[in-house]
Amino acid sequence: MSPFHRRDVLKAGFGIGCGIAGIAAMPAEATERLPDIPLFDARDGGPVEHARAHVETMRKLLQTCLASLPVTARWGASGIDSAARSWLRASGSPYVGELDAIAALLKESGVYMLNTSYE
């Protein structure tokens, strides 16, 4: 499978916070410097197997996301994470099982909280 190029997405108009007008104004050389975004075939085990194969990368991503939060939110991450998991279960989210497995792999708070922040 060929790598997915972020610059191709930006050129197609799907850049986060950019929109079509932002893409048109972006110099071509700016999009050429963006790193490739790797793709994985989710049919081969789905997100849990992908996480299992990349545990340290997942942990660094989680830690980086949490580091961007205010200190008080980081202190309360465990409680916020627990509340987010409860909400996901109560709302019937089909992803709770996958999130449970990924959280068990990482053994750190924040998986559910970050997931709900993007839903």
Rank of each mutant, 00 (worst) to 15 (best):
M26D: 02
I37V: 10
L105E: 00
A104W: 04
P47V: 12
E56D: 14
A73P: 07
A73W: 10
S68Y: 10
Y112C: 05
A28Q: 13
L114C: 09
G110Q: 03
F4H: 14
R74T: 10
D41R: 02
D44M: 06
V9P: 02
E108G: 04
E32A: 13
E98M: 01
V71R: 14
M1V: 14
K11P: 01
P38L: 11
H50F: 15
I20A: 11
V96I: 07
L34H: 04
P27G: 05
G17R: 08
A25I: 02
I16H: 12
L10H: 07
H50T: 05
A21H: 06
G17P: 07
L61F: 11
E119A: 10
T31S: 14
I20D: 12
A24F: 15
T116Y: 00
R89A: 09
S93E: 02
H5S: 10
G45S: 02
K107I: 08
W87T: 12
V55A: 04
A51F: 00
A53H: 04
A103S: 09
H50V: 04
D81I: 06
G97K: 11
L69D: 11
I20C: 08
M1R: 15
R89G: 01
L10I: 14
L61W: 14
V96A: 07
A104V: 02
D8R: 13
D81V: 08
A24M: 15
K107G: 14
N115Y: 15
Y95C: 00
V71T: 12
A83L: 12
S86M: 08
R74M: 08
I16N: 07
A12M: 12
G15M: 02
G46E: 06
T72S: 15
H54V: 01
G19Y: 08
I102D: 01
A77T: 14
E49F: 00
I102A: 00
T72Q: 15
I16A: 15
S93W: 00
R33D: 08
I80R: 10
R74N: 02
G13D: 07
G97F: 00
H50M: 03
G76V: 02
E32R: 12
D36G: 06
S117T: 04
R33W: 03
M58R: 11
L66T: 09
D100W: 05
A51Y: 00
N115W: 11
N115K: 06
L69I: 03
L106S: 05
L34T: 01
A101W: 00
A73I: 13
S91R: 05
L34D: 00
A77I: 15
S93N: 05
A21S: 11
L34C: 06
P27T: 03
D41C: 08
R59T: 10
D36P: 09
L106Y: 06
D36E: 13
R6M: 13
V96T: 05
L105V: 03
L66C: 14
S117N: 05
E56Q: 14
I80F: 11
G13W: 01
R74C: 06
E98I: 10
E108D: 10
L114H: 08
T72G: 06
S68N: 11
S78I: 06
V55S: 00
I23S: 13
D36T: 13
D8L: 03
G15Q: 05
L66A: 14
